[in-house]
Design a binder for these strands. Structure first.
Lengths: 247, 247
DNA sequence: CGAACTTTTGACAAGCATCAACACGTGTGG
DNA sequence: CCACACGTGTTGATGCTTGTCAAAAGTTCG
C-alpha cells in the first residue's frame, strides 16, 4: 500500500506547486492505481493515433512529446521530467495527435484517464492544480515557439539548456551547477529546429566561450549569467516555469 | 437586454462545438456583462506584464498573440477570430506573458475573469467546453511549433494559409474558396518565423504555380488540394481545429 | 571485442536575411 | 485638387546562417 503510493509523491508535490491540497485531496491522488512500465530510450509511451484511455505519468527518466512532418523530420514539442503528467492534454480527445517517446530509460505509469477526470470533478483544488499545470505547459510552449521562430542557433541552444536547468532545479533532480543531460545532440536539434551537426557547432562555441562544459551524460554550467545573456532568457519565463499558482 | 446579448452568440456557438450546453447554461453565458472597446490595427488589447483582471473576447476582426525577443523580432503565437476568448490562459496567472494585438480593426469585449471562473465552477458543461477549447488551442500551438521548426519557407506559408481557411470556414466567416486576408506580409512573417521579404517571394511562387491568387485584403484559393500538398497538412490537424469534443 | 550509435570536423551548397531601390495605394493637409 | 508622406508590396544583389554530405574518432553495450 505504502509502496504503491510512493511513485505518486512527485505528482502531489507538483500539483501543490500550483494549488494547495488538503490531506483528503492528497490521499485521493495517492490512491490512484498505477500500471508501471519500463521503456528503453526511443521507446514509445504513446503513439500518434492511439485511442487515449490512459494518462501517462513519468516516474523516472526523460520523455519527449513530438510530431513529425511527412518524410523526414521530427519536432520535439516539449520535454518531460519525473512527476509530469504527459498527455493530460489528450485527456478528452479521442486520438493522440503526437507521440510520446522515451529520451532516456523511462519508468512510466499509466492511469485510466477516467479516474483523473473523476478526481478533477470531485475536488476543485485538484482541478485548479491540473488546470494551472496545463497553463504552465502552455507558457513553455509559447516560449519554445518564440525560440524556434525568432532566435538564432546559438540563442536557441543556450535557451533550451537554461530551461532544462531551471526545471531540474524545480523538480529537485539537480542541485548546483551540474545538470543531467538527457538527450543526444540529434534530439537537441529536434527540439530547437536545427540539425545535429549545427547543434554540435553551437555547443562547441558555448564550450569555447567557457559558458558550459560537457562530460558524458552531464552538462556543467560554468557561467550562468553569461549563458542566460546568450539565450536572452526572459525574466518572466523563469517565473512561469515554477510558480504558476492559483490567484 | 437582447441587444447586449447578441455579441456573445458566437461564443455560445464556439463552446457548443466542444460540449453541448443546455438552455440554462446558454443563458448564463449570454448574461455575462461586456465592456466593448474598438481598436485600430496595431492596437494592444492586452500588454505583456498587464495584471490580468479581464478576459478578452474578439467580437469582430482579427487579433494576434505575440511575444518578442529583446531587440528586434516578434513572434506571433496564434491568430484569433471572432468568438475567440483570447487570454483565457492568463486567467489564473497574475501577469500576461504575451501581448494581444489587433491585426485589423477589432471590436473586443472585456469580461471580468472572476465571472468566467465562477461560471466554470458552477456549470460542469461550460467548464468542459472551456477546457476543450483550451486543448484545441494547444493543438494548434503544437502544429505551429512543428511548422516553424521543421518546415521550409514555402511549406510554412502554405500551411498557415490552409489553417486560416479552415478556421474561417469553421467560424462561418467565409464560404467558398475566397478568404479574408487579415494580415500584412510582415505580420505573416512574424507568424511563420520568416522575414516579410521572404514571405513576398513565397507568395509569388504560390501565385505563379496558380495555387492561390491575391487581391487586396483577400486570398482566393485556386487549388485547394495542391496548396494542401504543398503544406503537408496533416489529416488529423484539420479535425483537431473544429471537432475537439468531450468524449 | 566488435557492432551500432554518437560526436566531431571539414568542404560545399542552399535557404533565408539583409540592404536597397522603386512601385503602388491611401489618407492628409495645403 | 494636387502634393506629399507613409505604409505596404515587389524585386534584385549580396552575404551570413544553417543544411547536407562525408569521413573519422570516440562511446556504449551486448
Amino acid at each position: 500500500m505504502e509502496a504503491l503510493n510512493l511513485p505518486l509523491v512527485p505528482v502531489v508535490k507538483k500539483l501543490q506547486l500550483r494549488s494547495p491540497l488538503n490531506s483528503e485531496e492528497i490521499d485521493a491522488v495517492l490512491a490512484l492505481p498505477l500500471r508501471s512500465v519500463r521503456f528503453d530510450p526511443g521507446g514509445y509511451l504513446v503513439r500518434q493515433g492511439d485511442t487515449v484511455e490512459n494518462c501517462c505519468l513519468i516516474l523516472s527518466g526523460y520523455a519527449s512529446r513530438d510530431r513529425n512532418t511527412g518524410y523526414k523530420s521530427r519536432q520535439i514539442l516539449s520535454i518531460h521530467l519525473r512527476g509530469d503528467l504527459v498527455d493530460l492534454h489528450n485527456n478528452s480527445v479521442d486520438q493522440a495527435d503526437y507521440d510520446v517517446q522515451a529520451l532516456t530509460h523511462v519508468t512510466a505509469a499509466y492511469i485510466p484517464r477516467r479516474l483523473i477526470y473523476n478526481l478533477s470533478e470531485t475536488y476543485p483544488a485538484i482541478r485548479r492544480a491540473l488546470w494551472l499545470d496545463t497553463l504552465a505547459d502552455m507558457s513553455i510552449s509559447r516560449e519554445w515557439l518564440l525560440n524556434v521562430g525568432r532566435r538564432s542557433g546559438i540563442e536557441r541552444v543556450a535557451h533550451l539548456i537554461c530551461e532544462l536547468v531551471l526545471r531540474q532545479e524545480a523538480a529537485d533532480i539537480s542541485a548546483g551547477p551540474v545538470y543531467d543531460w538527457p538527450m543526444t545532440q540529434e534530439q537537441f536539434g529536434d527540439a530547437t529546429g536545427l540539425t545535429s551537426v549545427h547543434i554540435n557547432r553551437m555547443l562547441k562555441i558555448l564550450r569555447d566561450e567557457e559558458l558550459i562544459s560537457c562530460a558524458k551524460g552531464r552538462v556543467t554550467v560554468l557561467d550562468w549569467v553569461g549563458l542566460r545573456n546568450k539565450a536572452e532568457l526572459a525574466k518572466t519565463y523563469a517565473l512561469s516555469l515554477n510558480s504558476v499558482r492559483f490567484a
